[in-house]
Amino acid sequence: MTHGIKVGALAILPLALGAAVYGFAFGILAAQVGFPWWGVGLMGALVHAGSSQIVAVEQFASTGPVLGAVFAGAALNLRYVGIVASLSEILDGLSLRKKLVAIHMTGDENWALTMAERAKSPDVGAAFLLGSGMVMISVWTTSTAVGAAIGAVLPNLERFGLGFAFTAAFIAMARGLWRGQSQALPWLVAAGATIAAVSLGAPKAYGIVVGALCGLSAIYLASRANEAST
């Protein structure tokens, strides 16, 4: 198992570098709205979900309701239900403690890499997932904490028009999740529903929840339509 962990840790390094960049940007902006560096690092280690953390910080920055941030983050991470389900065969045979650790360390990057490598070689399994996950969570936690420590001593970046970092991070993450034109419909439905909800006066966090639910509904209806046609 040690060999598999090492292989996974080395294989994920290029993706970890990309995560470090937007983790650093997130840390700076989080510090700018009042989060201490240790709080940002602790959030990275315990939550380990960049999109949810960005939504939460944006919500706090706009003095929005905490419950809205929680709901928005949960909606953004609904995909992990499917991701965890796809790991059932890989995690089979591990103790409950190791399964929970592996699930916590699983993110978009190391999950996708593990599944891609497993498609090439069935021998790739839990060790590879754990090794790559250890690197990702370590890099994410460290980069966000370092970014926050530096951001705390910088002037207010909003004055220089650098508040776009949150949006840029979201675009980077969304681009990594894009799997082709076949996914265009749920993305468009989610975007349209979110824009409509915010335009009608709903808080941004609730708009994200509405958009996510509508996007999921579009996926479900499209799958049912495909089943009916076959």
Rank of each mutant, 00 (worst) to 15 (best):
L10S: 11
G44Q: 00
L17K: 00
A19K: 05
S51M: 08
A31M: 11
G27M: 02
Q32P: 00
V47N: 07
P14E: 01
W38R: 09
A9M: 10
G23S: 04
A31K: 06
H48E: 02
M43Q: 08
L13K: 12
G44M: 06
F24R: 14
A20M: 07
G34L: 06
A11N: 07
P36A: 14
A49Q: 09
F35K: 05
A9N: 06
V47F: 04
P14Y: 14
A45G: 10
G44K: 01
P14R: 09
L46Q: 15
I12H: 01
S51I: 02
W38F: 15
S51E: 13
G34Q: 12
Q53F: 03
L15C: 05
L13V: 15
A45D: 08
G23Q: 10
G39M: 12
A11F: 09
A19H: 02
L10M: 09
V40F: 04
G50N: 01
G39R: 03
S52A: 15
F35Y: 11
L13G: 01
P14H: 15
G27H: 06
A30R: 03
A25I: 06
I12F: 05
A19R: 02
M43A: 12
L29G: 04
A9T: 14
L17Y: 08
Q32R: 03
L46I: 15
A19F: 10
G27W: 06
L42I: 15
M43N: 09
H48L: 15
L17M: 12
I28Q: 11
I28N: 09
W38L: 02
V33A: 12
G39T: 07
G41D: 03
Q32W: 10
L42C: 14
H48G: 04
F26G: 15
F35I: 09
S51A: 12
A25T: 02
I28L: 14
G27I: 06
A49L: 03
I28Y: 08
I28H: 03
G23P: 03
F35R: 07
V33C: 12
F24W: 04
S52T: 09
F24Y: 09
F26E: 01
L13H: 07
A9W: 09
Y22C: 07
A11K: 03
G39S: 12
P14K: 09
P14G: 06
S51T: 10
G44Y: 03
G39W: 00
L15D: 01
F24S: 14
V40R: 00
A45H: 07
A49E: 00
G27Q: 02
I12L: 05
I12N: 00
S51N: 02
F24C: 14
G23W: 10
V33E: 14
H48A: 14
G50A: 13
P36D: 09
L13E: 05
A30Y: 12
Q53R: 01
A16I: 15
S51K: 02
W38P: 08
L15G: 03
A31R: 00
P36F: 03
A16Y: 15
L46P: 01
A49G: 06
G44N: 13
S52N: 10
F24A: 15
Y22P: 00
A45C: 04
I12D: 01
Q53G: 03
S52V: 06
W37E: 13
G23M: 00
L10V: 15
G34C: 11
Y22S: 06
A16V: 13
F26A: 13
A20D: 01
A49F: 06
A30C: 10
